[in-house]
Amino acid sequence: MHLAYPAVLAALLFCTGLYGVLARRNAILVLMSVELMLNAVNLNLVAFDVWLRDALHSGQALTLFTIAIAAAEIGIGLAIVLAVYRNRGSSDIDRLRDTAETDAAEALPDDESGTGTEDQATAAAGKAKKAEATA
């Protein structure tokens, strides 16, 4: 088999995941895109391991380790997303702006949706905290 087939497929899958990470708003969809990127890396590892016929089979061993670490990552990531959702009532990552550097960046992109008042309350709380920190 030509090595370019798995290599090109892995590159395109990685870029698909990259687009998802940058473009998605829901935190769980971002986690799905991260899974796509990890799988692209796994495909590269397996293809190059089969090509090189490594005596230690490093590629396949690292693929198994990556799969296990991805499982741990998705567990921790979902726990964090659930905690954020429980505290804020939303898991949209472009609404979590408490650590924004400037007041202009702290303004929410679109406040016309139903959860606007909650977000404004949390933003005000964050601003008050920042004022305490600077005082």
Binding site: L18, L22, A23, R25, I93
Partner: peptide, 14 residues
């Protein structure tokens, strides 16, 4: 609103 506002920048990068 599944996609955020920087979709076109993300598309360019990807």
């Amino acid at each position: 609103d599944a996609d955020s506002g920087n979709r076109w920048a993300a598309l360019g990068v990807a």
